[in-house]
Design a protein around this nucleic acid. Structure first.
Lengths: 241, 241
DNA sequence: TGCTGTTACTGAACGCCGTGTAGTAAATCT
DNA sequence: AGATTTACTACACGGCGTTCAGTAACAGCA
């Protein structure tokens, strides 16, 4: 953890690296993930494509850096939405985080695509990258929601036969660090919540909803409300008779 | 609708067209959707890349043809799964179709990606294409499941304020043709069911589940069971006390 | 101050890719 | 058999990621 003052060289280098990422990000928002081309970036910076290899070993490395950044922005949005609702209102928090997730995705479709879409044929997430870190942050928000709802939710999960061994050791450790008292079944529930929010949003972002449904937001809202039922935060809506 | 016997020329042409699609499909299963290259296909057929333009006007046209074919195979799988369970067992049918959907996706990840993934930047689904047709078939299976469950489900959907005007006219007409007595709220529920199945499966196919969860199938199964609760086919699992 | 090693970049090349266009040979129709 | 349609090749264009030898500017040291 040395904190040498950055030399002029290092500063310029960091700036260039940031500019590369910024341009790449803009290119992506304009033409989708496929529009991230080293040559286009270099063109805008008044450089040659080869010059970029001094900053990123390969195009995929650059994309990975972007993923980390973008994922982090999603995590920020979710955390902000959660913290805007008082802790005593778990239903409100679920709705807020859910809506924030969708709003972010709809507002940044290319970024969503970058994170949750095509990992390019020979993909593989870098092991301990910042991307995995941000993914965990985003996931932790959902886990927190489930943790808050767990007293009510635990009666509703059928036969909670989940063990910590059902999760990868590293992931389990990470979770138990943040939520020491949470049982494994709750973590499983959190993953399901994740999937549930992801489903409709992914369909919408990829254009599978619009050609049929006029107002996807309405659909999503209903799903979120139903989600609070699954979490035991809201009684089933059925008019009793 | 003339039914002339196909001349020799037409037959050869159809065969070539089919071979192109077949090779494209194989290339995709081997290297992901990005590996579909006209040059590679031509190479395998002992032709030049340009020759393929006699069959498909552009690479995207070929991809669209593939999408239609692949989507159709998914619809087949869902219908087969549904029909393997007697009509009197709606819960079984939901589980069967749900598991069939996941099994198909996991077994054909590239195909799943092709259908539900990156529409390439300047995409647009051809209006009345066979792809839209197959998508409707797959969607109809889910609608059918909801229709069967509707007597029980309708008590559970909160404030069913859905009108037919909430859907695109063409889509609404198509649905009402197949299910004359189904209210719009049920269609909305069907779309939510679709989203719910899609969520976890998409996360798994794109590799967001594996690094954390050991057995995604278990998670998905729980989600399906919870889905039958939402559909009113199963009482909430909570031990009453 | 001058010298030396490091760093940032260029320019050209390689091999991919999708896409057109002009020409040729074969199959088909009359 | 002759005229026409069809299927294909050969070639070219521009764009892509990536590599590599060479060059010019910089940094630290004497």
């Amino acid at each position: 953890m040395e904190v040498r003052a950055p030399s002029r060289r290092e500063r310029l280098r960091a700036e260039a690296s940031a500019e590369i990422k910024a341009i790449a990000l803009r290119l992506m928002t304009e033409g989708g993930p496929a529009a991230i081309s080293l040559r286009a970036i270099a063109r805008e910076m008044g450089m040659t494509a080869g010059a970029l290899y001094g900053y990123y070993a390969t195009r995929d490395d650059l994309v990975n850096a972007l993923i980390a950044e973008v994922y982090s922005s999603l995590a920020d949005a979710e955390e902000a939405a959660r913290d805007a609702v008082p802790e005593e209102d778990p239903v409100g928090r679920v709705l807020a985080v859910g809506e924030a997730f969708r709003a972010w995705a709809i507002g940044h479709p290319e970024e969503f695509q970058l994170i949750y879409g095509d990992p390019v044929p020979g993909y593989q997430a870098p092991e301990g990258g910042a991307a995995a870190d941000a993914e965990h942050r985003a996931c932790a928000v959902l886990t927190g929601l489930v943790a808050a709802a767990w007293p009510q939710a635990q009666r509703l999960v059928p036969h909670a036969d989940y063990e910590w061994s059902d999760f990868e050791p590293g992931f389990a450790a990470l979770i138990r660090e943040s939520f020491p008292d949470l049982p494994p079944a709750a973590v499983a529930l959190a993953m399901r919540v994740w999937g549930r929010m992801h489903g409709l949003v992914a369909l919408e972002v990829y254009g599978h909803l619009r050609p049929q449904v006029r107002d996807p937001a309405k659909l999503y809202r209903a799903e979120l409300l139903d989600l609070t039922v699954t979490l035991g935060l809201t009684p089933p809506a059925g008019r009793p008779k």
